[in-house]
Design a protein around this nucleic acid. Structure first.
Length: 929
DNA sequence: CGGGAAAACTA
DNA sequence: TTAGTTTTCCC
């Protein structure tokens, strides 16, 4: 006899064999209950009446076992004076279990109910004549309760179609059979044909009776068995093995007709149980239904193949419970995506959750889907997700789009329901374009009336421009420069791509055009035809206004004495016009953002303003959004206006109402040419790359968050100090943010810049107090951490607040005795040693360039030779093998071909990387000689 | 009942 | 230690 501690009764209880209850919720204290299921708890004498485990009648200590068919010992042997099973016949009628009215004929009923087909194996010859079919599945989700929670009533396991009224319960039907039978229900695992360690209990007189549960059916009562009032007890982890073993053992004993198990069998059972217990799904179970007939001598014979219910999921678990979005931080976002969105959710598992955005058409078909971006660490305590919205499928839509958001749990493809609405808002660029198009039709009409529309095409470029262009353009296109002098081609020229390219980049002469020197202006300006033409356009506010201004210009130019009054007039026109516009766009905003870009008109406007000394008017004019002309140019991707505007005095650091500078806008919209226009050359006012918008981000921060290497590179090249700016939302600097992006490319870029900066971004702490390395350790992958650890002079240890296990072990094992107080100093010394030994990545001392490296550099510098080498290295992936042998090894995963790698080598590699690769290349191919 | 949360446990 | 889970407790 053994003993165990009964948790219910807080005392030791004796029992016969190890397989007896250890769970604490079945009090198997009867000496004779050896292989009984907990249903046979003593003290529940009356229970036997209702929940007798017919399958496992208690037996004498040395029972007589027989071979199949299963054998039932005389019920008189039941312990504790139980009522013999003669009473089973009507027990379900008397109590909570009942049987439905007998079906007219089992086979007829079949069609009326939602049947499942018998289990697998139906492919094989079914040895059983009778068939079990599930008439009502159990509910899909149900809260599993721990033993300690099983007080009072807690709702029963209902049928899948249960309503408040009528309620349904799991139900099976026995077909193709006549005569009395027993239908058994027990709890099984879902991915294994083996019992589950959880308990399927029925509440009876303050007591939970465990599975299996048996119901009698017969001709008279019908062949439908309904299992009412069941609950599922979640076995605590520590008891899982014991419970599972007990169940398996009980089952085996039953199958073997209660023959005593051999030592070997017990051993095998142990092993098997150990295996199963290890990865049993604790949040999912299914019901197993079996049917038996009880023959003479209580011989139990299986009469139908077992069937299994659909899985029942634990409602309270994050792995199987319901998914629900409780709240969104905001209901809208930009079509460009990357907006921060916070979802409050019901319990989710960070390793097993996705946020899906999708759009349906009128027919309910999915026309678009995308997933929000977030990391495991962005899931806050199972109840909130901080993510970045995905970009909408069409970034150029001009209206708001309603989409839906839902949570998805990949493991079981569960979705949250109902989906929440989310509205994508079109980009500013599109909105303002649309607004301008509808509220003022300056665009084509205006140009038509003032330019090409006039008979003699009197509108011309400034003379200086005409002189400058041939030279400048010739670089790009010989023909155009030749054609330039001919007036008829002027229109063509000015609208040509080459011309735009030219003014987009740099042309000092062109910029002079905007200088307030009269000589720079249009020589013959507007002819009379212009005025005539303008009457036709009188209905158009913008073109009318422009025409008036141009006319004033014309007059003033020829008669300087009226200049002053003309100036005032123009100023008034300009200001009033803006006020009339919905969003206070000025003429300047309008000409820059015309749908059909009209350079001539735009420049002319600039010149006229310039002429009247109204530079300030132009350079300081902002619309209702606080956007300057520069903002608009970036928004609308009109890079060629940027330099002229700057020259005119527009402040590049001007921030709009969202605190975006024009550069912010350019980065957000990824306007590469605009960015270039800003960064190349020297604007009159120094660009301030540290300005932060309302999201707390500088342009560089935005580029990093959008994972735009090219943009980040341009910005950093323009001003390295930008990398040390901390954003104001979480205090992260560029390196922190690159860590979060987990982009090796960006990291390398920033670290390279760091080498030549005084500010130490490595030690900078964000709002949470982390340095980039520390941040990497808790948020990024190993590769990122490794990369960073290499560049930290002290390997980041001295400033660590938290050291993950792996690293800690290294430290512990490498430092021999570091005591509590002396640890830091010890380590520092040690690091100095390490640094001199193997810090080959950072070249602090200038070295002579090797011949190989020099040759390789020359080679890469030549486009043709670069391509040739790339092609050569691409054969059989030589480049990859080669790179793996060198300092480049750690980056190989970055590239798919030699071009990418060579590009890195040429533009971004460290000296060590370059040298080692040059060396390897030389050895391998000899190409460098 | 279902929901919420404290306490206990674990890596 | 901390942070994440599991189990118990409570309303």
């Amino acid at each position: 006899m053994n003993q165990y501690f009964d948790l219910d009764r807080r005392q030791n209880v004796s029992y016969l064999n190890d397989a007896s209850s250890t769970s604490g919720y079945s009090s198997a204290n009867s000496p004779t209950s050896t292989s009984m299921s907990p249903a046979h708890s003593p003290e529940s004498t009356t229970l036997q009446n209702e929940f007798a485990n017919l399958a496992l009648p208690p037996v004498e200590n040395s029972p007589q076992f027989m071979n199949l068919p299963y054998h039932q010992q005389p019920s008189q042997l039941m312990p504790n004076g139980n009522i013999p099973n003669a009473s089973f016949g009507n027990m379900y009628m008397d109590h909570q279990y009942y049987t439905s009215a007998p079906p007219p004929a089992a086979t007829v009923q079949q069609t009326a109910l939602n049947f499942q087909h018998p289990q697998p194996g139906s492919g094989m010859k079914n040895e059983f004549p009778a068939v079990l079919q599930i008439a009502e599945q159990p509910v899909e989700k149900f809260r599993f309760r721990y033993k300690s929670e099983m007080h009072g009533t807690h709702g029963s396991l209902n049928g899948a179609n249960s309503k408040r009224t009528p309620k349904t319960f799991p139900e099976v039907m026995l077909l193709n059979y006549t005569g009395p039978a027993v239908i058994r229900c027990s709890l099984f695992q879902t991915n294994l044909d083996s019992p589950h360690s959880h308990q399927l209990v029925v509440r009876k007189d303050e007591r939970d009776v465990c599975d299996p549960h048996d119901l009698h059916v017969s001709q008279e009562r019908g062949y439908v068995a309904q299992f009412i009032n069941m609950g599922i007890i979640h076995t605590a982890k520590k008891y899982i093995f014991d419970e599972l073993l007990k169940k398996k053992q009980d089952r085996l004993v039953f199958q073997m007709n209660r023959r005593e198990l051999s030592t070997k069998q017990i051993q095998e059972l142990h092993q098997e149980t150990e295996r199963e217990a290890k990865d049993m799904n604790l949040n999912q179970v299914r019901l197993c239904f079996e049917a038996f007939k009880i023959g003479e001598n209580n011989t139990w014979t299986q009469i139908a193949a077992p069937v299994f219910s659909n899985p029942i999921n634990n409602r309270k678990s994050a792995q199987t419970g319901e998914l629900r979005i409780v709240r969104l931080s905001k209901p809208t976002g930009s079509v460009t995506g990357n907006d921060e969105l916070i979802l409050l959710v019901e319990k989710v598992s960070k390793k097993n959750i996705k946020v899906r955005f999708f759009e349906e058409n009128e027919d309910g078909e999915i026309v678009w889907e995308a997933f929000a971006k977030f990391r495991e660490s962005d899931v806050h305590h199972q109840y909130a997700i901080v993510c970045q919205t995905p970009a909408y499928r069409d970034k150029d839509v001009d209206h708001e789009v309603n989409v839906s958001i839902e949570l998805i749990r990949p493991s079981d493809d569960e979705r949250s329901f109902p989906p929440l609405g989310f509205r994508y808002k079109p980009r500013d660029a599109i909105v303002s374009r649309k607004r301008r198009r509808t509220c003022s039709t300056a665009t084509t009409n205006s140009s038509g009336s003032s330019g090409t529309g006039s008979a003699n095409n009197s509108m011309e470029l400034p003379i200086t421009l005409a002189q400058v262009q041939p030279m400048a353009i010739s670089h790009h296109d010989q023909t155009i420069s030749q054609e330039f002098g001919k007036e008829s081609h002027l229109e063509e020229l000015i609208n040509s791509v080459q011309f735009r390219k030219l003014i987009e980049t740099d042309s000092e002469e062109l910029e002079k055009m905007c200088d307030p020197v009269l000589g720079m202006l249009v020589q013959d300006g507007f002819g009379k035809s212009e005025i005539i033409a303008s009457t036709a356009a009188a209905l158009e506010p913008t073109s009318k206004c422009l025409d008036a201004i141009f006319r004033a210009f014309e007059t003033a130019r020829h008669s300087p004495q009226v200049s002053e009054s003309a100036r005032k007039y123009v100023e008034e026109l300009f200001t009033n016009h803006a006020l009339k516009n919905d969003n206070h766009d000025t003429l300047l905003h309008e000409v820059i953002s015309q749908k059909q870009d009209n350079l001539k008109l735009a420049f002319k406007t600039l010149q006229v303003l310039n002429f009247f000394g109204l530079r300030d008017l132009a350079s300081t004019s902002i619309n209702a959004d606080g956007d300057s002309g520069l903002h608009i140019a970036c928004q609308q991707d009109r890079p060629h206006y940027i330099r002229p505007l700057l020259k005119l005095g527009c402040n590049p650091n001007q921030q709009n109402h969202a605190n975006d500078t024009a550069l912010h806008v350019a980065v957000k919209e990824e306007r590469m040419s605009c960015i270039d226009s800003f960064l190349n050359g020297v604007p009159p006012v120094k660009l301030d790359l540290t300005l932060k918008n309302d999201d707390g981000l500088s342009p560089l921060h935005m580029a990093i968050r959008q994972n735009k290497y090219d943009i980040a590179k341009k910005l950093i090249n323009h001003d390295r100090s930008a990398i040390s700016v901390a954003n104001t939302t979480d205090g992260n600097n560029a390196l922190h943010m690159a860590v979060l992006e987990q982009s090796v490319e960006l990291l390398v870029l920033i670290l390279d810049a760091q080498n030549s900066t005084l500010t130490d971004i490595l030690q900078a702490r964000n709002a949470a107090g982390y340095t980039p390395l520390e941040l990497a350790r808790c948020k990024a992958n190993g590769r990122v951490v490794q990369l960073l650890e290499k560049v930290y002079p002290d390997r980041g240890e001295t400033t660590m607040t938290w050291i993950p296990f792996k690293v800690k072990e290294e430290i512990d094992s490498s430092s021999d005795d570091s005591s509590d107080t002396g640890g830091l100093e010890m380590k520092t010394e040690e690091d100095v040693v390490i640094k001199t030994e193997n810090d080959d990545d950072i070249d602090t001392t200038p070295q002579m360039e090797t011949a190989n490296a020099r040759n390789l550099k020359i080679l890469l510098n030549n486009k043709t030779r670069f391509d040739k080498l790339a092609a050569q290295l691409n054969q059989q992936d030589i480049w990859r093998q080669l790179a793996k042998k060198t300092e480049m090894e750690k980056f190989v995963f970055l590239w798919s071909s030699a071009e990418g790698m060579l590009d890195y080598l040429y533009h971004k590699s460290s000296r060590a990387e370059f040298e080692s690769f040059a060396q390897a290349l030389h050895e391998q191919l000899g190409v460098l000689t």
